[in-house]
């Protein structure tokens, strides 16, 4: 399959699920062509609510819809959703409303639009809210199954999606297992935990490391919260060193989640790869190189870490 953005896979999945699950309703805030909720909007106009550029009202309305038995998907760029954090905190999390928050345009991978449109602190913030799960799929098949899981399971969720197209990582017979990490490649010297758009680059990095005689295990963490504690500890025991890779600020994201588990259970050295500053404009490729998220840079960081 050609590379596909997880936001596109999401749009397709939602369109299909709309048929099966009549309680699904979708809200968007003037970004339906970007979040891909437009597919659902066209097929089920009576169950789609265009809220205009008013994310706070969209999230609160979604909470109300959920309280009355609907399954609302509220969509915007991840950065604009977390811009209404306190509304999410009260109306969704603390109310325990069954709202599915869909934040697209994750990370510096969006490229030229620059920092203002990049979700870079969203995992950290959403992870801090009790009740809210955080899911970030890494390819088409995983996204589609994740969306179905989310739609059919009660509870608030933050789903983080990419603007950029992603290569397939999982096999065609893949089964999404909420809360469980996926070992994509085995290895004994180090484990690389990756999530979302950078899983593929982490796999490429592991191949490159193989040539240097470094055996790297690669684990895809699609459910960042609740994180697969058992697997994280097991990998630390088996490979000793741990690296985390994410297109997100290194504060509060996957790296932090992994370190929290390890420091309480089995402390080992961890190297976090992620964004340490604001993002900036540039081509996605140039940005990944500059910020160390391309396969070559990941391999280099792992090599230095293992020295």
């Amino acid at each position: 399959m050609p590379a596909k953005a997880t936001r596109v896979s999401f749009g397709e999945a939602l369109e299909e699920l709309g048929e099966k699950i009549p309680d699904i309703v979708v809200l968007d805030a003037d970004l339906s062509k970007s979040t891909m909720s437009i597919k659902f909007a066209k097929k089920f106009p009576e169950r789609f609510f265009e809220m205009g550029i008013a994310e706070q009202n969209m999230i609160g309305t979604a909470a109300g819809l959920a309280l009355a038995g609907k399954i609302p998907f509220a969509c915007s760029f991840a950065c604009f959703l977390i811009g209404r954090y306190e509304t999410i905190r009260m109306s969704v999390a603390y109310t325990n409303a069954n709202v599915k928050l869909v934040g697209t345009h994750a990370g510096i991978g969006i490229g030229e639009d620059g920092y203002s449109q990049m979700g870079l602190e969203d995992i950290a913030l959403m992870r801090a809210l009790p009740n809210v799960s955080v899911v970030q799929p890494c390819d088409d098949i995983e996204t589609k199954q994740a969306v179905e899981y989310i739609a059919t399971h009660e509870g608030p969720v933050f789903l983080r999606l990419t603007r950029q197209a992603l290569e397939d990582v999982n096999p065609p017979d893949y089964k999404f297992n909420f809360g469980k990490g996926v070992v994509l490649k085995d290895g004994k010297d180090v484990t690389i935990f990756a999530t979302g758009g950078v899983v593929f680059n982490s796999l490429l990095a592991a191949e490159e490391l193989e040539k240097d005689g470094i055996s790297a295990r690669v684990v895809n963490i699609h459910t960042i919260k609740p994180i697969d504690e058992e697997l994280v500890i097991k990998c630390a025991i088996e490979t000793g060193r741990i690296v985390t890779v994410e297109d997100h600020n290194i504060v509060g994201g996957l790296g932090s989640a992994v370190m929290e588990v390890l420091s309480e259970n089995y402390p080992v050295k961890v190297k976090r790869i992620g964004i340490k500053k604001f993002g900036e404009s540039g081509s996605p490729k140039a940005l990944y190189e500059k910020y160390g998220l391309d396969a070559k840079s990941i391999a280099k960081t792992v090599r230095e870490f293992l020295k």
């Binding site: 620059g114 404009s281 940005l287």
Partner: peptide
Amino acid sequence: RKINSRLQGHPSRLDLPYVEASTGS
């Protein structure tokens, strides 16, 4: 919109103080 440019895709006061405020949200 090129990498390392002061002219970000949306105004960044960090990069170019003459825009007065960082906006884009």
